[in-house]
Simulated assay, not measured.
Amino acid sequence: MKVTTMTIVSRFVSLAIAAVEVPVSRTPPPLTSHLAAIGMLIAQRNASGDWRFSLRSHAIGAGESEDVLIAWASEAMPPVGIVIGWQLAQRIVPPLLDAGASGDPEICRAFLNRLSRLVTMPSVDLAVHHGGAGAGPLIAVAERHGIAVPELTVLDIESAWAFGNRSLLTSHVDGLAIASWRLWLAEANGAAGAVTAAFEQWMSRSQDGQADR
């Protein structure tokens, strides 16, 4: 049986995270982020112009080490790709770097190597044209295009992490990654018609259980 492989000519990674703020000392009470979930929508185009998509996510609960999450991410993150996200430098990358700054040295090293290779590629910060670091939440812009965005509050995320509701956390980051990708396509000034159609077909099959995550 002949096995065909897909030659990737472009790859995009819509990246999303969920994190909680935890105190590192009592007086004064500075806060540090504790990573709770990572989600990514990966879109790949081959030389023939065909698109493939996959959705990957993982979450941890209170009491679980961030090492569990970043070890998963070290395997799940593609080595190269154009990263897409909302306020990458303010909301997404810092908690990832914090998680990779402590813990098991080998796990952290592998994660930071993979992360640095990915985020040093060209990236698309969707917030740049909406105020950059001063932009409001993703939902405010996405709703103008009719794009649904998860509406978990900071307290919702904290509670899900505290009580080990991993499915809620993964659903949240999945939704953020999908919303970011859809927003990027919506703001492409009509140039993304083919990929938008391919993605929505994939989403329809995914909801019917016919496509792989």
Rank of each mutant, 00 (worst) to 15 (best):
L15T: 09
A16Y: 11
I17H: 10
I17W: 02
I17K: 01
A19V: 13
V20E: 00
E21K: 14
P23S: 08
P23L: 02
R26P: 11
R26Y: 11
R26C: 03
P28T: 13
P29C: 07
P30I: 00
T32G: 11
S33I: 05
S33C: 12
H34F: 14
L35N: 12
L35W: 01
A36M: 03
A36T: 08
A37N: 10
A37M: 04
I38L: 03
G39H: 12
G39W: 07
M40N: 08
M40K: 08
L41D: 06
L41M: 11
A43R: 08
A43M: 06
Q44E: 15
A47V: 13
S48Y: 06
W51K: 02
R52W: 04
R52Y: 02
F53L: 10
F53H: 03
F53W: 06
S54V: 01
L55C: 04
L55Q: 14
R56I: 00
S57M: 05
H58R: 15
H58K: 15
H58P: 00
A59R: 10
A59E: 08
A59V: 11
I60N: 03
I60G: 03
I60F: 02
G61A: 04
G63L: 02
G63V: 08
E64C: 07
S65Y: 02
D67S: 05
V68L: 12
L69T: 01
L69Y: 04
L69D: 09
I70G: 07
I70M: 04
A71V: 00
A73N: 10
A73F: 03
A76P: 14
P79M: 01
V80T: 14
V80S: 15
V83Q: 10
V83E: 06
G85K: 01
W86T: 00
W86R: 07
W86H: 08
Q87W: 02
A89P: 09
Q90K: 15
Q90G: 13
I92T: 13
V93K: 13
V93E: 14
V93Q: 10
L97Q: 13
A99H: 05
A99I: 03
G100Y: 12
G103E: 13
G103K: 10
D104F: 07
D104V: 07
E106C: 05
C108P: 09
R109N: 05
R109S: 05
A110Y: 03
F111S: 10
F111H: 07
F111M: 05
L112A: 08
L112Q: 14
N113E: 12
N113W: 05
R114I: 01
R114W: 00
L115Y: 07
S116L: 04
S116C: 09
R117H: 06
R117C: 12
R117F: 07
L118W: 08
V119T: 14
T120C: 01
T120W: 00
M121W: 09
M121Q: 13
P122W: 03
P122F: 01
V124T: 06
L126F: 00
V128W: 02
H129S: 09
H129G: 04
H130G: 00
G131E: 08
